[in-house]
Design a protein around this nucleic acid. Structure first.
Lengths: 291, 291
DNA sequence: TCTTTTTTGTGCAATTTTGCACATCAATAA
DNA sequence: TTATTGATGTGCAAAATTGCACAAAAAAGA
């Protein structure tokens, strides 16, 4: 059964009983309808209609087709409604991906956005590997570092996280509070094991002796745990550090430490209402946080 | 949702994940597939696929379409199978129509044909009005009289019913048995009230005084009842009269009394296996009866 | 009975659709 | 790294589809 359009034509003829009527409904010339029916009957090897001067009446075969095609027509109509509606409504899945680092930042925002759109299911994917937008793995990605320049992606600046140096009370009691950068050589630090391109990490490599970075980890979250546990002084986002009552701000956030964050979406999805709605919500949320 | 073919194309793309694969399955050029997708997306205003170098992956909208179209594809495949099968099998309805007169003749034949095709449902329509083949009211019609010449109908000779003159024993006892045509003026006859074109009826009008036709009826079946009841002498098909033990053959069947019967089918249905099968069965049955 | 209306059916031209060639791009393997 | 493979995307010509004009026939109405 190839050529679904011919089935659609036959459906209208069976429904209306005349070629002319079907042609009008379908918006084509009645000759086209006749030829569709002829072609379909020849391919199937079955007479679908009996032709007479008052129109076409469906044979048993034609009525069988009518039943099936009627159901199909209904299904397609409903599908069309759903698809068109989907273009302007915030429902279904919203897949957001980022490094696990930003989970504390994003979680409350995502939660609130979901609360505003009860029909929405938020899927927040974090992981080591980058989830690829061009394969449809996510609607929105939050990326850090230099601006990504994938051709099919729409990139826009999101925010700069304020990053400061923090240490736990337990550490301060043990090693004392540093008095300016020049005293850092006497202190222990928590840092990345790998050579990441994060600004604060590069600053750390330049301004602190390597042997003072006594606790090294790959995972940002483990770094946070180490700082809280008093392993040493380390960089933390201001918003995150302020949640811990046992952390002391050793150095206030500096612009050169701040890592720029980017919002990345795929071209095909960027214009959709769902993504747009989320992006504006996201930017408004961080604006509130800055203020 | 117009243009079901584009839905079919999108279905294959969603199923296979690549334009090239879909093009191969559909038997069209891959450029055609791309253009179908583009057209469909534009009409719906929704992105169905995300394009990347490895192929097309369905968005949520595309997956919704996939679900619906998959069901449609199944339905159409099944329908196609049913329709094609219907072309070469004897199932469903077989609608036969004739004047009620021929019911005694046809009933046993129809019954046996049904027994040979258990899946068949025989609908035998009799009535005053002619059921019209061109409106699909019947597959086969048995008509009497001069050959019908409707353009769309396929007419073939069926049989000539042997018609004789019969009377009941009770009538013979009352009025005696006629000794040849010349004594008919002394007898009572059962005949048609209307001026039918049936050969035996015309013969009756020509060879028997009108006032001797004492029992007139419109319905052939009532005429039969009258003869059996002894109302007078009347024409009956030989096959029918021989069933009654209380009937006497006044005159044996003559060729000029015999009414030619015609088998009529509609052009569109004539070639179908069901109709052909029935026609050959029908002709074989009456051949047996003659022999 | 005759006219009007409605419907199907067909040859031919215009339009649309399709196929082909080629460009491009990304992933894979040597 | 480099060549290769397999995918998408586009201009242009060929092919198929469609629309139009018109014919014909039957039902409906005057």
């Amino acid at each position: 059964m190839e050529n679904w359009d011919e089935v659609r034509t036959a459906f209208q003829v069976a429904r209306l009983g005349t070629v002319s009527g079907a042609a009008e409904v379908l918006g084509v010339h009645h000759a086209t309808v006749i030829r569709h029916i002829d072609a379909l009957e020849q391919r199937l090897g079955v007479k679908l209609f009996q032709r007479h001067a008052r129109g076409y009446t469906a044979t048993e075969a034609g009525q069988d087709l009518l039943q099936v095609a009627k159901a199909t027509d209904d299904q397609f109509t409903q599908l069309s409604g759903r698809l068109k509606g989907r273009g302007s409504s915030v429902t279904g899945d919203l897949v957001v991906t980022s490094l696990a680092t930003f989970s504390p930042l994003l979680a409350p925002i995502l939660a609130e956005f979901q609360a505003e759109h009860p029909e929405l299911i938020v899927r927040y994917l974090t992981g080591d590997r980058l989830f690829r937008l061009e394969y449809g793995e996510a609607h929105v990605a939050i990326r850090a570092g230099t601006a990504p320049d994938q051709p099919d992606n729409v990139v826009q600046p999101f925010m700069r996280q304020k990053i400061g140096l923090y240490a736990a009370h337990s550490y301060i009691r043990r090693k004392g509070r540093p008095q300016g950068e020049e005293t850092f050589a006497d202190h222990n630090f928590v840092g990345h094991d790998a050579e990441t391109r994060a600004p604060f990490n590069m600053w750390l490599r330049d301004n602190v002796p390597l042997e003072n970075i006594v606790y090294r980890t790959i995972d940002n979250r483990s770094m946070e745990d180490a700082i809280v546990a008093g392993a040493g002084i380390g960089f933390l986002p201001h918003s995150l550090a302020s949640r811990y009552s046992n952390l002391v701000q050793v150095e206030p956030p500096r612009p050169e430490w701040a890592a720029p964050l980017w919002l990345v979406t795929h071209v095909d999805l960027h214009r959709t209402a769902k993504v747009q709605s989320f992006l504006t919500f996201l930017k408004a949320a961080v604006k509130d946080m800055d203020a």
